[in-house]
Amino acid sequence: MERTGSRWLSRLYLIIVFIFLYVPIVYMIVYSFNAGGQMHHFSGFTLDWYRELFSDTRLLMIVLNTLIIALFSAAVATAVGTMGAIGLYFLTQRRVREGLLTLNNILIVNPDVVIGASFLILFTVLGIQLGFISVLIAHIAFSIPIVVLMVLPKLYEMPRTLIDAASDLGAPPRQVLTRVIIPFITPGIMAGFFMALTYSLDDFAVTFFVTGSGFSTLSVEIYSRARHGISLSINALSTILFGVTMLLVFGYYWLSQRGARRLALWVKR
């Protein structure tokens, strides 16, 4: 169907797009090893910036805070979101369910500046001091809708007969929930948790609004350092973060693949 000429052209185009996508990341990583101290003129290999990074206790504390916020907010959001999704699934009034889902999606499509600003007002009105707690609450809040969206499709994939069978065999509703529904939707719950985790780790705008002055997460810290200009320890930090992100992505893929396989086995049985 396609002539060789156009095939070469399309291959070339794809290569250019990939170069466009990866040059900035590679550039940043390469210069994290630059002895020259600038993001230009590579004058020699050094690990100094990594050493500087690891001796920067303030920054290490921020990394720790960021991780705590991410794990904790993802866990809470996953719990609330999963419960909400199951509740939505069993909601018989279609109008109510659709209304709730629309409200759910508002937080996903709303620009994060607006979310940040509105949370700032909310915390001020509620008298919650800006800092660790406000950031944590905000992260939980904006992660819940994404968990719901990851879990709901799994629920609709579940054969309704499975629940009927369990009930007919005398399982009380609570047992149906813990022994049938939750095991079935576990891949969705895991996906939701990972998405919440990455949302939290990645967020800048919302955190920036509700963080106050004493507390900082990595994104906010990178922003304020970058505003002062280039420092190669940020490059070193990015390189490490990039590595961690890759691990997370591949971990997620591995888990979801394994989850799919286990599910297939389970259904076959």
């Binding site: 550039y27 994104s219 200009g229 990015s238 992100t245």
Partner: peptide, 12 residues
């Protein structure tokens, strides 16, 4: 990859 880091790369 974190948005901030990508933006930062372009500063260089």
């Amino acid at each position: 990859v974190n948005l901030l880091l990508k933006t930062y790369a372009f500063m260089g």
